[in-house]
Computed example of a mutant assay.
Amino acid sequence: MFKGNIRIPKGYTHKNAGWVDEMNKIVDPLKINFTGQYYIALHSCGAQCRYYTVFNLQNGQDLSKLAENLPSSPESE
């Protein structure tokens, strides 16, 4: 598990209400939540539109292309 300072992904900022993405939508707290160094976030663009982003918080690398085929709705199998 990575224990150093995390690298904030481009487009993410912390506001009074919590973390927001590049579209100013609230996202889960920015923390490592997958295999010791990654952050996976679910984003909503409204009207059942959802997508994921994946970041390596140790080095700041954006790996979101890896999440392009993840299901975009809870009903997906």
Rank of each mutant, 00 (worst) to 15 (best):
N56Y: 13
E75P: 05
N69W: 09
P9R: 04
P9G: 00
I26M: 02
N5S: 09
I8G: 02
V20I: 14
N59D: 15
N5D: 13
F55K: 00
R7W: 08
S44E: 13
V20R: 01
P71Q: 02
G4E: 08
P29E: 13
N24F: 02
N24H: 10
S64P: 09
Y51D: 10
T13N: 08
H14I: 14
S64C: 06
K25S: 01
R50G: 02
L70Y: 14
L30K: 01
I26W: 05
L42G: 04
K31T: 14
N16A: 14
L66A: 08
I32K: 05
H14S: 06
N33C: 07
P71R: 05
A41F: 01
V20Y: 03
A47K: 01
P71W: 14
V20A: 00
F55H: 15
K31P: 00
K15A: 06
T35Q: 12
Y51N: 03
G4R: 08
L66D: 13
N33W: 12
L57K: 00
I32Y: 06
I6N: 03
N33Q: 09
Q37D: 09
H14Q: 13
I26R: 10
V27M: 10
G36C: 03
G46E: 02
S44I: 06
K25Q: 05
I6Y: 10
L42A: 09
L30E: 08
F55W: 15
P29T: 11
C45G: 07
N5Q: 10
G60L: 02
Q37M: 12
L42R: 12
I40C: 07
T35K: 09
N33D: 15
Y38W: 09
D28L: 06
N33R: 06
